[in-house]
Design a protein around this nucleic acid. Structure first.
Lengths: 193, 193, 193, 193
DNA sequence: AATGAATGAGCCTTCATTCAT
DNA sequence: GATGAATGAAGGCTCATTCAT
């Protein structure tokens, strides 16, 4: 029975190390060592170190974008869509924590290829449109600036990579709920609620 | 009276390059070249590359922590304190944009010395206490979890390094106002307002 | 009867690549790729990369040496022998252009095994003897130094690998004729001819 | 008293090794070892290995081209110009033997930059024009094809790198004289001379 | 203060070769 | 015969750091 190829082991090890030490500070020798092969052997699987970064990051990035795309098409009030966005985002973060962290540290905001910029842009603009509709429909307050508000929400969620731990006691769902509740209802107590 | 030297030029150049390319990918030769001296000459100013990173980052970090400390001591309602926190944070980000970005990319959430961890922890806990008091006083809604809410706010603000540009048309003040308004009042339109 | 295998394909591909990129800069993966097999599979045909170089080069080298040996035994005037040598040399170069180019680039003048040195030496000395006899018989001018003159001729012919193209308009025969005519008659116009 | 920089030592060592083992088979470690420094230290002097190749080769190539250019402008019979070309070529080969050998092995006939192709082309065409004029003036025989004859001469001279040794008993001048005499007068004895 | 040559370790990558399947 | 994963050495190159001048 043939042992399965070690591609998955390699991507996992790379993801973990990229997250811990950063892409630039992780050597291929580190990765190879974690898998238990020689660094030259990595080149059976990849053509360059950067390819490994992209391999780590592509799937979760595509996954979350898909989810947001789908939520946008549903026929729901803006607030409910935002709630679902927050939960999908937090859920993906939870399930692909290491991979997603690498994305946010190494790809987002760095000058990378058109592929990633386009992904970032679509992700943002899809949510912006939800917020815009919320304002237009009167569901959201008139003081809401759709773009800034969206970046506020995304920032809250992405910052989770700095403090959330998947194996911790606090579930991602609860966090998502808190983040979107504060985003939607505000921290200040509403007189009539 | 200390003779002015090229120390400031060096720190500025380092900050800019660290932000653009990341700490690990910036070489001392890059920095020396930006200042117009030779690589070896840098060692008249520093003892190691890491020292340069800390030099870049120390002042703005200390500055913002000071501000938050002071705000915490004021006798104001929680909502007003949060508003001031957001403005102080955004203002520091605006004024020390490159330096602060380096801090967030290279120090925050990385395993650095006790000095930085302590700073991060104090910053967070100071704001958490403001929120806690807000909840206790009934100013903030009972569903607010002080720690998560604080991290939500900080995340929103820190994410600015991914999209805010100091020289841009949108002033940091307006952004701070939007972020804390959404944080405090929520995006959803309040029936009785 | 030996089953035809891909041996010839492999040697052809190797020859072409050795000529284009040089022996040292051609990888076995390049060669395997050109044939359409995997790198490891090459080792069913060869034991080492160098063996492939020798395989490329052995046949044409042996062929031209055989021809020169035979010409030397004929009972002809020196000038006619030289003419035949030039034609044989140019003809072999034309027919085995890629292989012969590899020989001249990678074997001739390099420190290779006794086998190749002996071949080179015999080739040279066989022609030198023809010239010597030409001088001794009074067919060739007394100022002719047999060894230098022979190296002059061989150099002219071998330099063809730098500019001759088998598929070009100018046939190798015409070139051989020009080279040996200049060698024998000289470029300067003879008063009484 | 400051020790002079080791640039010359480095180029010399590189030239020697490139000639002996070929450019591709010579490692920077070989070169550094020959000079007595570490391989990383080479990068104070060069930006890439190829730059070292060009440094080895540029001066003698430019020198010989200059000489041929000058000879072409003189008011002399074609045969005398050719004689001077042969002597200049052989003399440069003699004085810069290792460098020139590297040029012929590694640059000539390889797919290099426009700079080298242009040099090769100008060198050839300058001599071709001398021969053309010789034919037109009736100094050279009508059977002389200027381009092929020129390549014949150049080939003879360049082949010297395969057998000439500067420290040997046979001086380059004598060889040049023999090569151009055979080229001009032919090996065959002239009845009326 | 500044230089610039040198260090020495380490990095990404290539590659001839081996071998179990 | 062929595969493809793995090896292990080496190659070109980078870089933080040192130090004599």
């Amino acid at each position: 029975m043939p042992r399965p190829s070690r591609w998955n082991e390699i991507v996992d090890a790379a993801a973990k190390l990229f997250q811990e030490k950063g892409y630039a500070s992780t050597s291929l020798e580190d990765i190879a060592g974690a898998v238990g092969i020689w660094k030259g052997s990595l080149y059976h699987y990849i053509d360059s170190k950067e390819e490994l970064l992209f391999a780590v990051v592509r799937e979760p990035a595509a996954h979350i974008l898909d989810q947001i795309r789908e939520i946008a098409t549903l026929d729901l009030p803006a607030a409910e869509k935002i709630r679902r966005v927050a939960h999908a985002h937090a859920h993906t973060l939870d399930e692909t924590f290491v991979y997603a962290s690498v994305y946010l540290q190494e790809i987002a905001g760095r000058h990378h290829s058109a592929e990633w910029s386009a992904m970032d842009r679509e992700y943002l603009s899809t949510i912006v449109r939800i917020v815009e509709k919320g304002v237009a429909d009167g569901d959201f307050a008139p003081y809401v600036d759709p773009r800034i508000a969206t970046l506020t929400l995304i920032g809250s969620l992405n910052w989770m990579t700095h403090w959330y731990r998947p194996e911790g006691a606090l579930p991602a769902t609860a966090i998502a709920e808190q983040i979107c509740t504060v985003f939607l209802q505000g921290a200040v107590r509403r007189s009539t609620s």
